[in-house]
């Protein structure tokens, strides 16, 4: 698998060098290291700080969500690896405006351990920390183990809500509560047609048969939860939506936000074909789409595949969803 690449061991540093130059308007390194980036127009005194983060390979996640009205800082790890505690701690300190800091990140063993270590250090330094783990991947564990699920592209919505709550000046406890609600109301299923390949190996992480598809795909190039025979786009969406409907409480008259996300190599033409069916399925149930995003929001290197995320709205979430923000990837006015 060919890639635009210099030294595979330097790709994350080189990417971040590019990011910092490209998005000067939105972010800058804390303490000279590009592994911890702070919003130029983010932290302010009296506001809860929002720190997000995780491994690389999900671009434009997560650094594209740093800016006014969204995250105040992001900690960046190696490809598919949690950042270590130090850059997270730097983010917490830089994001702190005296009202505490909220950590929001995906529920992975590595991230949990590193962010928890950083949280302890931050608390020791006098910064109150609250944490919300995103757990939107409904295929990754049964409903009884809701808290054990992993966070995937639905973190887009959870970040957005958290950022808006912080920007509105809510207290740390209230920011945490509404972010937790956003996560609990967000449901994602991912499918993959081809595995991604790491810059270091330049071959697919694993093989998906020529006529197969993986359901329940994560965003780290792990194999999916189950392999099935390849089916049509509408059938794929139907399977995904059936899973989501089985968990979602939305009824006729409900409003939702929709994200159809490319895992990297799936082009927008196909995403629109998927979205078409998502919209059909929702409107058949009398559920209205309040807002939708279609594109590359939380990728897995060059994986061919897509995920569908639905956030069930209520009045509070709707207001926070529309709250203005200005970041490299998401601008709401």
């Amino acid at each position: 698998v060919k890639k635009f690449l210099n030294d595979p061991d330097k790709i994350v540093e080189e990417m971040l060098d590019g990011v910092v130059r490209a998005h000067r308007k939105y972010l800058s390194p804390i303490d000279k290291s590009n592994r911890a980036l702070i919003a130029r127009d983010g932290p302010r005194s009296g506001k809860v700080g929002l720190v997000i983060g995780g491994g690389s390979g999900h671009e434009p996640g997560f650094l594209g969500y740093v800016g006014k009205g969204l995250a105040d800082a992001v900690a960046v790890g190696n490809i598919f690896s949690s950042p270590p505690p130090i850059p997270i701690l730097h983010c917490a300190k830089a994001a702190s405006g005296g009202e505490g800091v909220l950590f929001v990140y995906g529920n992975y063993a590595g991230d949990v351990m590193n962010f928890e270590m950083a949280a302890e250090m931050a608390e020791t330094a006098g910064i109150p920390i609250r944490t919300v783990l995103t757990t939107d991947d409904i295929t990754s564990s049964p409903i009884e183990d809701r808290d054990g699920r992993r966070g995937v592209a639905g973190n887009f919505f959870t970040f957005k809500i958290a950022g808006a709550a912080c920007d509105r000046g809510l207290s740390l406890g209230l920011c945490e509560a509404v972010t937790r609600k956003a996560n609990m109301r967000t449901f994602t299923v991912g499918v993959a047609l081809e595995a991604c390949s790491m810059p270091q190996t330049q071959r697919p992480n694993f093989e998906i048969g020529a006529k197969d598809i993986e359901f329940g795909m994560g965003i780290h190039g792990e194999p999916g939860v189950i392999r099935e025979k390849m089916i049509s786009a509408d059938e794929i969406v139907d399977k995904v939506m059936d899973r989501i409907f089985a968990e979602m409480k939305a009824v006729e008259g409900s409003r939702v936000a929709v994200l159809v996300n490319s895992f990297g190599a799936t082009p927008m033409m196909e995403l629109y074909v998927l979205f078409r069916r998502v919209e059909q399925r929702l409107s058949a149930k009398g559920i209205a789409i309040e807002a939708n995003w279609i594109g590359h929001y939380c990728t897995s290197l060059d994986m061919v595949g897509a995920s569908i995320s639905i956030m069930e709205l209520d009045e509070e979430l709707t207001g926070l969803l529309h709250h203005p923000c200005d970041t490299a990837v998401l601008k709401i006015t």
Binding site: N78, I79, F80, F206, E222, P223
Partner: peptide, 21 residues
Amino acid sequence: DYLTELDGAIGDADHGITMLL
């Protein structure tokens, strides 16, 4: 490479890279 392959089968294919780093 062996470690990375093992991780590719059930994880995210970076264990060899991470450990060496």
